[in-house]
Computed example of a mutant assay.
Amino acid sequence: MRALLSIDYTNDFVATDGNLTTGKAGQAIEEALVAVTKEYFQQGDLVVFAIDGHDPSDHYHPENNLFPAHNVIGTSGRNLYGSLADFYQEHQKKDNVLWIDKRHYSAFSGTDLDIRLRERGITELCLTGVCTDICVLHTAVDAYNLGYQLIIPEKAVASFDAIGHTWALNHFENTLGAKIS
């Protein structure tokens, strides 16, 4: 069984005026990201939206000191970007669509994602979204350590750091054994 994890493809990370935007790099993957999301959904696979949710008044959260306020709970910056938002609006109540709020880079850190995947017998994860070398990377490392097989569609991940993006793709393939498609 397999699932797709759509990681942080939100206005703050992708829109031109987003608070921590990947800009054109993130916008360029929209078509491929939505296509692979629709493919998994139509085949009945689980589609998980793993989305950062922050409170800028939480002075103990390390990201609040590293980055500008982003994906703040209750703001439009946390909404899904572009046509992915349309997909979610249309399908959010389906049994194979799930939203997970996350506080850390990894979609597994502090969430019940692993339990939800194991309940469904999922062994293979396809990771899409942003940022390749931050949240996608940390999610991939945790997934690998939990024993999941990984697929990373190269045209459905992006970063604001081109060098970090390339490094992460190499790391996924050569260190985590991921299939880069």
Results as ranks from 00 to 15, higher is better:
Arg2His: 07
Arg2Ala: 12
Ala3Lys: 00
Leu5Cys: 00
Asp8Ser: 00
Tyr9Leu: 06
Tyr9Cys: 09
Thr10Met: 02
Asn11Met: 12
Asn11Tyr: 08
Phe13Gly: 00
Val14Gly: 10
Ala15Leu: 07
Ala15Pro: 13
Asn19Val: 04
Leu20Tyr: 05
Thr21His: 06
Ala25Ile: 08
Glu30Val: 02
Ala32Thr: 03
Leu33Gln: 03
Ala35His: 13
Ala35Tyr: 01
Ala35Val: 00
Val36Gly: 09
Lys38Gly: 03
Phe41Val: 01
Gln42Phe: 15
Gln43Ile: 07
Gly44Arg: 07
Val47Ile: 08
Ala50Asp: 05
Ile51Gly: 08
Ile51Arg: 12
Gly53Ile: 02
Pro56Gly: 09
Asp58Val: 07
His61Cys: 11
Pro62Trp: 13
Glu63Ser: 14
Leu66Pro: 07
Phe67Glu: 05
His70Ser: 06
Asn71Leu: 15
Ser76His: 14
Gly77Arg: 07
Asn79His: 14
Tyr81Pro: 03
Gly82Asp: 04
Leu84Tyr: 11
Ala85Glu: 14
Ala85Asn: 15
Phe87Thr: 04
Lys94Cys: 14
Asp95Leu: 13
Asn96Trp: 01
Leu98Ala: 06
Trp99Asp: 06
Asp101Ile: 01
Lys102Cys: 12
Arg103Ala: 08
Arg103His: 11
Ser106Met: 03
Ala107Tyr: 08
Gly110Thr: 00
Gly110Leu: 03
Asp112Pro: 10
Leu113Trp: 00
Leu113Asn: 03
Asp114Leu: 07
Arg116Gly: 02
Leu117Gln: 03
Thr123Phe: 10
Glu124Ser: 14
Cys126Leu: 06
Cys126Thr: 12
Val130Asp: 01
Asp133Met: 05
Ile134His: 12
Asp142Asn: 08
Asp142Cys: 06
Asp142Ile: 04
Ala143Leu: 10
Tyr144His: 10
Tyr144Asp: 02
Leu146Pro: 02
Tyr148Glu: 03
Gln149Met: 09
Ile152Asn: 06
Ile152Asp: 08
Ile152Thr: 00
Pro153Glu: 00
Pro153Cys: 06
Lys155Leu: 11
Lys155Glu: 13
Ala156Cys: 06
Asp161His: 02
Ala162Pro: 14
Ala162Trp: 05
Gly164Asn: 04
His165Glu: 07
Asn170Ala: 11
Asn170Pro: 02
Glu173Gly: 02
Thr175Met: 15
Gly177Asn: 09
Lys179Leu: 15
Ser181Asp: 12
